[in-house]
Simulated assay, not measured.
Amino acid sequence: MAPSRRRSLFRPCIDLHDGEVKQIVGGTLYEDDASRMKTNFVASHPASYYAALYKEHNLEGGHVIKLGPGNDDAAKEALAAWPGHLQIGGGVTADNAREWLDAGASKVIVTSYLFPDGRFSLDRLRAVCAAVGKDRLVVDVSCRRRDDRWLVAMNKWQTITDMEVCEESLDALAEYCSEFLVHAADVEGLCQGIDEELVQKLGEWVTIPTTYAGGAKSVSDLELVDRLSKGKVDLTFGRQATLALTWGW
């Protein structure tokens, strides 16, 4: 009998903006104009509440993303609620990555630090890998679509970098990290469906654990991600533990 293949899993998340747990439409998070930001959901509970809920229901593999300044305290409270089980991203560099592990993060997630002036720096990737080790590093290759390609986007997904998300680039990055996180920024927060083509391509390309985020609207999207990626890509939702517990994952 052939062994059963891996199946895609639900991964929880906590997105923080101004210290609050929010679901933001990804393409509206502008650095210089907060009035243009669109928010679908603002939680009534603090980040630590959701972290404790994930702990209670053993929802592993989740991440905390700091979207801009003013989120460090909330992030540390979430990590303290379930130390060693949540990843942290947002403003992570080679200089502060170890501090976040000491604060309770299981892994650190890095994006913008790797792209000074929008250009990929292998030296910076090596530096942060040396600071925390490959096993505790996640590279965020969140991206925006340009014609028939996906390009890594940084600075709250507003700055397009020189790196294309493709098999070649993912293979190169995988030498220095243990996971990928991929937000499809063009559909992030819209709850109108995932980027099916991107998920399928990720299933073909990735060789290490990978979590996709962006556009998921119902439990059927997890089944869709599983089918499209052949179980190689996991899925995260932005409405935090409410959906996870409702659907019994």
Rank of each mutant, 00 (worst) to 15 (best):
E56L: 15
V92S: 04
G68W: 08
K217S: 08
L101I: 13
C129H: 09
D117I: 00
W205G: 03
C13K: 03
G248W: 09
L222Q: 01
G26N: 08
K230E: 14
E56T: 15
G19T: 05
Q192E: 14
L202P: 00
K22T: 07
Y30K: 13
W249T: 00
L190W: 02
V110H: 04
V108S: 07
K38W: 05
W100N: 02
D72Q: 11
N155R: 13
Q240K: 15
G91P: 01
D148E: 14
V141S: 03
V233L: 05
A43V: 13
K201S: 12
L9K: 09
E60G: 00
K38A: 15
G203Y: 00
A244F: 05
H63D: 11
R11D: 02
Y113K: 10
K107F: 05
K107R: 15
A185R: 04
L198A: 09
T111K: 07
A105R: 04
L53K: 15
R98W: 04
N155K: 13
A81N: 07
G70N: 11
H85L: 04
C166K: 13
L151H: 10
A216D: 05
L9Q: 12
K201I: 09
L125S: 03
V165N: 02
L243G: 11
Q200K: 12
T211V: 14
S4Q: 12
A80D: 05
S48K: 05
V110Q: 04
K201H: 11
Q23A: 10
M154P: 01
A185E: 02
A43F: 08
L170D: 01
E60V: 02
V152H: 00
G70P: 14
S229E: 10
V92P: 02
F10L: 13
H85P: 06
A184P: 00
D162I: 09
T207Y: 11
A131P: 06
W249Y: 15
D95R: 03
S121Q: 10
L137N: 06
R36G: 00
V152P: 00
Y176H: 12
G19N: 05
K107Q: 13
R239T: 01
V128C: 07
N155G: 01
D32V: 09
M154W: 00
V182H: 07
I24R: 03
S44K: 14
D102P: 02
Q158R: 11
G231K: 01
H85R: 15
V92A: 01
A241L: 10
